[in-house]
């Protein structure tokens, strides 16, 4: 069996010791995969992904990235070590220009490759290229989300984690963002996404995990989960699958 790119082993995490929100979660993400974490509100999906990103305390368990232990790594080191993260809200620097948002993330790269990598991102996101000098706070919701994704991609991550990338977007924009994610996977980047919008996520992902009360209740191929109506009823709520959170 090949080694997982991201390996989370019996992780306990939360905001206060003794009150774990993520309770003993283990998951593996293989290189090139898109894995979606689904589940009802308050299941601990966001806490799980934030704990992996170092923003929420881990109480026990272990996280490895490409074989290296990153359990205790500092948040800012993770960007350098190949883990990109797109927070759900406040995920761009609104007072800074689009170009400066890109540069901030590129500053972790060796000097020689910075501008090359920024150009590559503007090529991948032509909409943003047209608004380089605009303050990111003035972008539309969809473009802002694209910028947040682009920013996470600049440091050449092995894997990108997205926290509810579809939240607050219209169904049309969700389609645009998700098709961009498919493009990104096509260039060899692995994706771990937390989603409230189960239908769209299952259509994109290879595999899915369903988190309930901080623990994994179910996992399997995305197609199988999408087809299994009982799972939809039990965990995801029928209305949820119709789009926008």
């Amino acid at each position: 069996m090949t080694r997982a790119l991201l390996d989370v082993d019996t992780l306990e995490a939360g905001y206060e010791p003794g009150a774990s929100i993520v309770r003993g979660v283990s998951l593996k993400v293989m290189a090139g995969e898109i894995v979606a974490v689904l589940g009802p509100n308050g299941a601990g999906k966001s806490t799980l992904i934030k704990a992996i990103a170092g923003l929420v305390s881990k109480f026990s368990g272990c996280v490895t990235l490409d074989g290296a232990d990153i359990t205790a790594a500092k948040v800012h080191e993770l960007a350098r070590r190949g883990l990109g993260f797109v927070p759900q809200t406040e995920n761009v620097f609104t007072l800074m220009s689009v170009a400066d948002n890109m540069r901030i993330a590129a500053d972790v790269l060796p000097k020689a490759s910075r501008s090359e990598q920024i150009d590559a991102m503007f090529e991948l996101f032509p909409d943003l290229a047209r608004q380089r000098q605009l303050a990111a706070g003035r972008l539309s919701g969809g473009q802002r989300q694209m910028l947040a994704v682009a920013r996470a991609l600049i440091a050449k991550p092995h894997i990108v984690m997205l926290d509810e990338a579809s939240a607050g977007l219209s169904p049309k924009l969700v389609g645009q963002v998700f098709s961009k994610l498919a493009e990104i996977r096509a260039i060899g980047i692995t994706i771990l996404m937390v989603e409230q919008n189960a239908k769209a996520a299952l259509a994109l992902a290879d595999r899915a995990l369903i988190l309930v009360e901080g623990a994994i209740a179910h996992e399997g191929p995305a197609k199988a989960i999408a087809a299994d109506r009982s799972i939809g009823r039990l965990y995801l709520g029928a209305r949820r699958s119709e789009g926008g959170a």
Partner: peptide
């Protein structure tokens, strides 16, 4: 400037 606006995002971005 990044830390001044949003310290958490700054750390996520590698600052």
């Amino acid at each position: 400037r990044a830390v001044s606006e949003n310290p958490i995002l700054a750390r996520v971005a590698g600052v």
